[in-house]
């Protein structure tokens, strides 16, 4: 289970520009260079969901709004 949060990246929405990968402070995103989507473009994936801190950096810089972010609900 992810520690603090996780992201979902739309494979068909991603254009593989790599901006989310370089903006991630914990290096948990990678560009999947072994597979392509139906447009023939590589896409970013969440490689290590334990590292994700749900900081929204990737979602803010993503030009194509392909990233959805979830955060763990703090138990009271």
């Amino acid at each position: 289970m992810p520690q603090k949060g996780y992201v979902e990246i739309s494979i068909e929405g991603c254009k593989g520009c790599n901006l989310c990968v370089i903006s991630c402070p914990t290096d948990c995103l990678v560009l999947n260079t072994s597979d392509t989507n139906s447009f023939g473009l590589h896409y970013a994936t969440l490689a290590d969901e334990d590292k994700c801190i749900a900081c929204l950096n990737c979602a803010v810089v993503c030009p194509d709004a392909a990233i959805t972010v979830y955060r763990k609900i703090k138990s009271a």
Binding site: M1, G5, Y6, A65, I67, V69, Y70, R71, K72
Partner: peptide, 16 residues
């Protein structure tokens, strides 16, 4: 969505 998590960001509805 996984259980125990809340949605904090998604694509705005004002984009088609």
């Amino acid at each position: 969505m996984k259980e125990g998590y809340e949605l904090i960001y998604q694509r705005p509805k004002t984009l088609t």
